[in-house]
Simulated assay, not measured.
Amino acid sequence: MANSPSGDSAVDRVVRVLDTFTADRTVQTASEIGRRAGLPSSTAHRIVDGLVHSGLLERDDANRIRLGMRLWELALRGSHALRLRQAALPSMETVQARVREHTQLAVLEHDEALFLERLSHPDAGANITRIAGRLPLHASSSGLVLLAYAENEVRERVLARPLRALSADTVTDPDSLRRLLAGIRQRGHVVAPGSIETVSTGVAVPVRQNGAVIAALSVVLPRDAPTIDALTTLMAAARRVQKALNRSRD
């Protein structure tokens, strides 16, 4: 792939264009894409036109751009995330039916918690998580589990950065966070009251495959709600997901 004068490749520029889309920003103009991707207008329009032609992006009647169905189709072919979601979904439904609150599945992706699935009850409390959305590892209960079991290099890289407080209860001191992560590895779960929203408590457990933690399963409860039943239910669900993953490999 040819490089631009700035040194980035054509693939890099395409990724920058696609990265301008978020869970909250699903439709944009080509000019907005170029500005957010840091690309010259002519370059952005050329890349967008090519991606629209290939079906990876689509134009609506107002000439605005959104992600294309072909991109979704390609992403699902042989996707590890899809297999994990399929293995976890029946157990997540069991958790959600019992706890009757938000139930979520997240994986570690580029030093963030990426949420693959979320089930919610109509009467469930506050929750900012979205499917295909991301949250900081140090703030969300799922992220704390993923960070606790991540490779040491990942943990140190995250802890070396400024840690933003999402609420008054978010742990941002690196030494305190190290102690919290060590406790998660010792107990095999986390209860994180108010770490993202002061009115909520996140409860999360690891999901393993072949001994390695590959995901986190969590529920979001009202701040003062009991957590024991939710924790017991999550742990049983995580074991069922592990068995389902093992069966899918046979």
Rank of each mutant, 00 (worst) to 15 (best):
P162R: 14
R187L: 00
L177P: 03
A126I: 13
L245A: 02
E151D: 15
I196K: 00
V171T: 13
L105W: 07
S42G: 07
A30K: 09
A124R: 06
G133Y: 10
D250L: 15
V95C: 02
G7Q: 14
L146T: 06
M69V: 13
G50C: 08
A168C: 00
N3Q: 09
G133I: 14
Q86M: 07
V15I: 15
R35W: 09
P174E: 14
P222D: 13
H121C: 10
T103C: 07
P136G: 01
L217K: 03
G183R: 12
S195V: 09
L144G: 00
I214F: 01
D12M: 10
S9P: 06
A10M: 15
R100P: 04
R25G: 04
L146Y: 04
F21S: 02
A244I: 08
H53F: 09
A237I: 00
R155D: 06
R16W: 14
P222E: 09
Q28D: 09
R134W: 06
H102S: 09
V48F: 10
A237R: 08
P5V: 07
M69K: 12
S54Q: 15
L74A: 11
R64H: 04
A165W: 01
A215R: 02
F115G: 03
A148W: 11
T201N: 02
D8A: 12
G78E: 00
S195Q: 14
S167Q: 11
G194P: 12
R64S: 04
V199R: 15
A165L: 07
I196S: 03
